[in-house]
Design a protein around this nucleic acid. Structure first.
Length: 393
DNA sequence: AATTCGGGGAA
DNA sequence: TTCCCAGAATT
């Protein structure tokens, strides 16, 4: 596509977007705060997954000041289930920075200084909220631009990224200052929304609907029949299988022991039951859930693991306990992991909580207020349902 | 340049 | 199941 084609390209794109663009809630505002929240939530996350989170989040924290003033655990609780929790921690830190600063950075460079804001997110907020001519490249536009350019190399390589970002900048409407005239009158943010929408709904990964594409005349892949060859697919990560074990230690009053995960751990800031990755020889003989339905009776296969867990709990928390109830087995696939999580109940025998770590005895019903991981929430829900009354579990 | 991040949805 | 997702930060 030559520069001479760009006005017609933009016109066809924007006409199509006006007719077919989705009415997404964050497209109804130019306030940088809700736009920024949406962009961070949408990092590596589908629109369908984000919408309900975005609505709840904005209801809880309507302004950047409200977010900055909130406890981090409240932010993480609202993020629970979205994954990639460093996004929530960075969002919170960035809100504090904006409030401290007194105003939003109004440039790509300024926005990029905020934690959790990279090249894409900075360009998105700059163009959507402030109408700046800032380019964007993300999953949808990577695919669209690679096809428009008929880019045969790896679009994720540095050479590929350079080509795509260059194209992303080239298609933006000239600003008044650049053209030295009155400008095109076209909003760069609208062009960016339109290319993402086109990439997301027409220029799809599989079976792109080129017949419905408003810019197929300018598409190098379409005109050469290479739609299904471009872009090169992302390399698939190898799957790692892990077996973990976790213990809900119960005190006499029914409270269970939880700890807040440290800043240098995965799930930093979230709460969790004492959780371990035991030596594999202790878990390989533990019967599977299917092998001992309907209940989870303990057998000889569990015994060495239970003893190991008892020691591990004491080392981690200071609490002495007897581990003695099979409560739940969770199979959880996430990112590149396939996890088998063995969940046991234990009874406190004595000992004091180790100082230095953040730990708490809490009634199972009250766990609803703490941010937990996906599997932690499943276990917590089971504990609350069990009522788990009576003597030693 | 490669890896981590430990979630969900659609097909 | 598999593949992908409005990426960023770290190593």
């Amino acid at each position: 596509m030559t520069d001479a084609d760009l006005p017609a390209f933009r016109a066809a794109l924007l006409d199509w977007y006006a007719a077919h663009g989705r009415d997404l809630p964050w497209r109804r505002t130019r306030d940088p705060y809700p736009i920024w929240v949406s962009e961070v939530m949408l990092q590596q996350t589908t629109v369908a997954a984000v919408v309900p989170y975005w609505e709840r989040f904005l209801e809880a924290f309507p302004t950047v000041e409200a977010l900055a003033a909130a406890p981090e655990s409240a932010v993480l609780r609202l993020w629970e289930g979205l994954g990639y929790y460093s996004r929530a921690r960075n969002l919170h830190a960035a809100a504090k920075a904006v409030v401290e600063r007194g105003e939003w950075p109004r440039s790509v460079e300024g926005l990029r200084d905020l934690p959790g804001v990279g090249r894409y997110t900075a360009g998105a907020v700059a163009s959507f909220a402030f109408g700046l001519p800032a380019p964007i490249v993300e999953a949808n536009t990577l695919r669209l631009y690679a096809r428009l350019l008929a880019y045969r190399g790896d679009p994720r390589s540095s050479a590929g990224q350079a080509a795509l970002w260059d194209f992303a900048e080239r298609i933006l409407p000239p600003s008044p200052s650049e053209s030295g005239e009155s400008g095109s009158g076209v909003d760069p943010g609208l062009v960016n929304q339109a290319v993402m929408e086109l990439g997301g709904t027409v220029c799809t990964v599989k079976e792109p609907r080129c017949g419905e594409c408003p810019v197929s005349d300018w598409c190098g892949a379409f005109t050469t029949g290479l739609q299904s060859e471009i872009p090169l697919p992302k390399a698939r990560p190898k799957i790692t299988e892990v077996t973990e074990a976790t213990v809900a230690v119960r005190r006499a009053d029914g409270a269970v022991l939880v700890r807040q995960r440290d800043a240098d751990e995965r799930w930093a800031g979230l709460w969790d039951f004492p959780r371990f990755e035991p030596p594999s020889e202790l878990t390989t003989n533990v019967p599977t859930l299917d092998a001992r339905q309907p209940a989870l009776p303990l057998g000889d296969g569990d015994t060495p693991l239970l003893a190991w867990l008892s020691t591990a709990v004491q080392e981690q928390t200071g609490v002495r306990c007897e581990v003695g109830a099979g409560l739940l087995e969770i199979r959880h696939g996430v990112t590149r992991y396939r996890i088998r999580l063995l969940c046991y109940g234990g009874t406190r025998l004595g000992g004091r909580l180790r100082s230095g770590a953040t730990m708490r005895w809490i009634q199972p019903a009250a766990l609803t207020d703490l941010p937990l991981s996906k599997t932690g929430r499943q276990f917590a829900t089971r504990l609350a349902d069990l009522s788990w009354e009576g003597d030693s579990p």
